[in-house]
Simulated assay, not measured.
Amino acid sequence: MSGILRPGQQYVSAVGDQGVSYGRVRPEGVDTRHGAILYLEDVVVSFDGFKAIKHLNLDISVGELRCIIGPNGAGKTTMMDVITGKTRPSSGTAYFGQSLDLTRMTEVEIAHAGIGRKFQRPTVFEQHSVFENLELAMKMDKRVGTTLFARLNSEQRDKIAAILQLIRLSGQAYRQAGLLSHGQKQWLEIGMLLIQEPQLILLDEPVAGMSDAETARTAELLNDLRGKHSIMVVEHDMGFVAEIAQQGVVTVLHEGAVLAQGTMQQVQSDEKVIEVYLGR
């Protein structure tokens, strides 16, 4: 793939009578004209000779909710580390849209370009209110003085209110985040990702440790986001996966490669998947 650009990189935007005009790559410039937002091709990750990822091929469409399942050690976390720039592949390619080469970008550049990741354990500002957590996460000038003293405008307040409603925390807006239940903290962190307007969201076991009621509400939340964001969900809870996969694609990883792929019904009936993961 040619014409690789990176966020912040200067490029020629126009040539005319006034000379050459330059622009800079911005997050909204991610090229998804071919319908896919993420491409992983022949990705290999080796740690001291051990291949955690073995020639992995994967692509996710714009607006798709993709579920990734597989046994422990299948390479799920390492795959997300490659996508977010935490781990460099030994070989292979990883693209965000058509032109952003993730293997040449830093973690900060990748986040700025529009990929957001939520880890299994919620990381919220526990001494601040739910509203303040969302305010701190909002895209704005992050210089200390500006962040501390700037007042939100009506558009920003409306945006936070919409996110609060979406994540089922409108009634908890001014409650200290540390007092929330485990599930509510998970929803808050998802809200903190959403308010930054990522184009691709990676969720690592979002319902781990949740009650049945919280798991059901999380499924509702992700189904609400379907089509509005491109989402990759790594999860072990098969009941939850069945709720959010619907007729979408489920990818099964095993020993660093794709073992099977298809609808939930198809992978559940796949003999290879039954043998190595689901059991009989």
Score class of each variant (00 low, 15 high):
Y174E: 13
T215S: 15
G8K: 14
E189C: 13
P27F: 12
D224C: 06
G191E: 11
T77G: 06
L134D: 03
Q172R: 14
P198I: 04
A257R: 12
V249K: 14
M138W: 01
T84S: 15
T78V: 11
I190L: 15
D17V: 11
M138Q: 13
Q156C: 06
H55N: 15
D212C: 00
D59T: 05
S170V: 00
A245Q: 04
A161I: 01
V144R: 09
S129C: 05
I190G: 10
D31F: 09
L203C: 13
F50E: 03
S2H: 11
L203G: 14
A36C: 07
L203N: 12
G279C: 08
N57I: 09
A74S: 15
V130S: 02
R280N: 12
V43G: 05
L221M: 06
R175C: 06
G145P: 01
Q247C: 01
Q186W: 03
T251W: 01
H182Q: 12
R168L: 07
P27C: 10
L202W: 09
V233A: 03
L56H: 05
Y39G: 00
S61G: 14
E126H: 12
T78M: 04
R117V: 00
L202Q: 12
I160F: 08
R117T: 02
D101N: 15
A173D: 03
R143C: 04
E271R: 15
V144M: 13
D17K: 13
M105Y: 02
K118G: 08
Q184C: 06
I53D: 01
E155N: 13
L200Q: 01
W187N: 10
M264H: 08
A257Q: 12
R117F: 05
G183Q: 07
Q186P: 06
I190A: 12
Q172I: 00
D237G: 12
L222H: 13
G75A: 06
R143S: 13
T32L: 06
Q120A: 08
H55S: 14
D17Y: 03
L166T: 12
Q127Y: 01
I69N: 01
M79K: 02
V108F: 09
G248K: 05
L180C: 01
H128D: 05
V241T: 07
L259Q: 05
A52Y: 07
D141S: 08
H34Y: 07
L194Q: 05
E197P: 03
A52G: 09
I115M: 11
G29K: 03
K118P: 06
G49C: 10
Q172K: 14
I195Q: 09
A213H: 14
